[in-house]
């Protein structure tokens, strides 16, 4: 198990170094940082002085190593747009996106898995086929449309839930959470639902397909033959054998959710990283974009590694691999 861990983490570090390399290329060679930073009245000597101060005259490798060392410490320089520290901007926005994505993921599992199990065991019954059919609708609706419909229904017409913003937030250290206040919790419902609808149907369809496959397995027949009741048969014996792909899908999709959150955050005016990135793109704010790239990749790679480790925990056959 230890060798397994070392190998997986080694892989992850290698991938991150590669991503950092590309982020560095963007950062260093997409436009001239000095041109973007100095004001128009600066003389050539001012520019040379700044160039030296920023270390841009050093060798390529030295600069890359310095970039990686800084990035590893969370140092991505200053935003070209408003001269604030990039990591500070991201840290300010990250909690909002993270909470939104975590809640959407949680919803997709809590709703999607049972729906998948029920549509599998009820195959052929009208209610299971109905659910299966409506899930196609869920998969095909674009998320901004779902968002607008949700706002229209629950916020504008019924007035039950807020349709924009994050509500009141509480600060715990540098983290700002909306989950501890009533208005914050109310505010997260609609965006999370809108973001998770696609995931719910994805998880449901995956679990259904896996369950149908697993329920045909010999060990299920044998478990029935030794007297295992239907409920534990479905939820213990069969479902556990279906979870591997669900874990993979979920972890991979958390990355996608962060990306999709861009749309949802725009629709719901949710003050997260997605909105920050949209602004960075509009103003060609390269340091923010490079930092966003590194951080999103870091989340992806971390999730992938966790998935591999989770595999080994769920399936003992993989521990020696």
């Amino acid at each position: 198990m230890l060798a397994f861990l070392v190998k997986r983490i080694g892989n992850a570090v290698l991938v991150m170094l590669t991503v950092a390399f590309f982020a560095f290329l963007i950062f260093r060679f997409l436009g001239d940082p000095v041109e973007m930073m100095v004001n128009e009245s600066a003389t050539q000597s001012d520019r040379d002085e700044l160039r030296g101060r920023l270390g841009l005259n050093d060798g390529f490798l030295v600069q890359y190593v310095r970039f990686v060392t800084n990035a590893a410490q969370g140092e991505f320089g200053l935003s070209w747009r408003n001269q604030q520290s990039v990591i500070g901007l991201i840290a300010e926005r990250f909690p909002a996106t993270f909470e939104l994505v975590i809640i959407a993921t949680f919803l997709s599992l809590v709703i999607g898995i049972p729906l998948g199990v029920f549509t599998a065991i009820g195959r052929g019954r009208w209610w299971a086929e109905g659910l299966q059919f409506s899930s196609i609708v869920g998969v095909s609706l674009p998320s901004f449309f779902v968002g607008i419909i949700l706002i229209l229904t629950f916020s504008v017409t019924l007035g039950w839930l807020p349709g924009y913003g994050r509500g009141d937030v509480m600060r715990i250290g540098w983290w700002s959470t909306g989950l501890l206040t009533a208005s914050g919790r109310a505010a997260v419902v609609l965006p999370a639902l809108s973001l998770s609808l696609f995931q719910i149907t994805l998880v449901m369809r995956l679990v259904r397909a896996e369950m149908l496959e697993t329920l045909r397995a010999d060990f299920i027949k044998f478990a029935r033959a030794r007297g295992v009741k239907r409920r534990p048969l479905w939820f213990r014996h069969a479902l556990k054998n279906c979870l591997m792909p669900v874990v993979t899908l979920t972890a991979m999709q958390v990355g996608n959710l962060i990306a999709f959150a861009l749309v949802t955050e725009t629709v719901f005016q949710w003050p997260g990283m997605g909105m920050l990135f949209m602004q960075a793109v509009t103003f060609v704010d390269i340091p923010v974009m490079a930092a966003y790239l590194c951080i999103v990749s870091f989340i992806f790679v971390t999730l992938n590694t966790l998935v591999d480790i989770a595999y080994a925990v769920i399936d003992p056959r993989l521990r020696n691999a």
Partner: peptide, 28 residues
């Protein structure tokens, strides 16, 4: 009924199937 049959299987009648490789749940 299905429910009654569940308490017959294993208790009154046991079973051994052909392929021992696939009769056991790999995750337990």
């Amino acid at each position: 009924s299905d429910d009654e049959m569940e308490s017959v299987r294993g208790r009154m009648v046991g079973a051994i199937f052909q392929d021992p490789l696939t009769s056991l749940n790999p995750l337990f």
